[in-house]
Amino acid sequence: MSSQRRGTTSFSRWSGLATVAFFVALAAIIATIVTRMASNQTQTTPFLPEQGCQVTVDGFTTFLNQEQAANASIIVGESIRRGLPARAATIALVTAYQESDLHNLDYGDRDSIGLFQQRPSQGWGTVEEIMDPWYAAGKFYEALVKVPDWDTGVINDVAQAVQLSGHPDAYAQHETKGRAWASALTGYSPASVSCIDRSETPAAASEITDFLARVYGEAVTWTLDGLTLQLTTPGDPITWSVAHLAMLRGALAGVETVQVADMMWINADGEYTMWQTVEPAVASVVITLRG
């Protein structure tokens, strides 16, 4: 009887060990399959940065998606059109960051709408007018230049004087971003912008030329030879302003490369490429469009 119990116990132990070994082996097989699947997925679908544009000024880098980039180009472009200094563009960008994060919103607090959350009931214009980014930016600048010492005062306080926000100290948090973009887009920080566009938008040179005609008038001229747009400017900082603004409009125009003097930027799907040294350009700015 005692011998039978020992035999039963030995069998039970062997059976238990066999079961454990089976599940350990099964777990190892599953882990191997999962690892291989993850490896294959990584190889076939690599991480790609979000499409848009980034700027780097004095070691600080910030990013805008394609919608934000297009709106930023209009905000800065309107300041240039009005002959205002870069500081005006900084204040406008700081304000739009806070009010809408540079999105043209059709909603907001009470009847606030648009890039600057302007209110039709407060005399900023009709809904249709305010939803036009060019109009909204223009109305902002009209109000801005009426603020005493707007060009020397604290940016947060100047923005608040225009907006009369319920959050009067909120604008300051966006100042570094606003300064970086204003500096680059008005041409005072050369070769500081890079973009990614994977949309395969066909070439549309008018998206750039119409924009530049509105911003710079006859100061900037151009010729279009096939897919190559050659622009002539009066010189810096306008040259770099034209180049950077064109890049922010690039997703609408199918921009592939931008060259200023012996510096070229090339659109790349997977990374924000740096400007590189090449043979000198034949015009102030040379832009090639997607075929």
Rank of each mutant, 00 (worst) to 15 (best):
G7R: 15
G7E: 12
S10D: 11
S10K: 14
S12C: 08
L17R: 13
A18S: 13
A18C: 07
V24F: 14
I30G: 10
I33N: 02
A38S: 12
A38H: 14
E50H: 11
C53H: 02
V55C: 09
T56D: 04
G59Q: 04
F60I: 04
L64M: 10
N65D: 15
E67M: 02
A70F: 08
S73V: 05
I75N: 00
G77Y: 00
E78P: 02
E78H: 04
G83F: 12
R87L: 14
A88R: 01
A92P: 03
A96L: 04
Q98M: 09
D101P: 03
L102M: 15
D106L: 02
L115A: 03
L115G: 06
F116V: 03
Q117R: 14
R119G: 06
P120S: 10
P120V: 05
G125Y: 05
G125L: 02
V127K: 08
E128M: 07
E129L: 09
D132V: 06
D132G: 06
W134T: 04
A136H: 07
A137C: 05
K139S: 06
K139W: 08
F140C: 01
A143C: 12
A143M: 13
T152Y: 07
T152P: 00
Q160R: 10
V162N: 00
L164Q: 11
G166S: 15
H167G: 01
Y171T: 01
Q173H: 08
H174F: 15
T176A: 06
A180T: 07
S183F: 01
L185F: 06
V193T: 14
T201A: 09
I208D: 09
F211V: 02
A213M: 12
R214Y: 15
V215F: 03
E218S: 15
V220R: 02
L231V: 04
G235M: 04
D236S: 14
I238F: 09
H244D: 11
A246E: 02
M247V: 05
L248K: 01
G250K: 11
A251T: 12
A253P: 06
G254C: 13
E256G: 11
V260R: 01
M264D: 04
M264E: 15
W265V: 08
W265P: 00
N267W: 06
D269I: 09
D269E: 13
E271F: 13
Y272D: 09
Y272N: 08
T273Y: 00
M274E: 10
Q276S: 08
T277G: 05
P280S: 14
V282Q: 10
V285H: 00
I287S: 13
L289R: 05
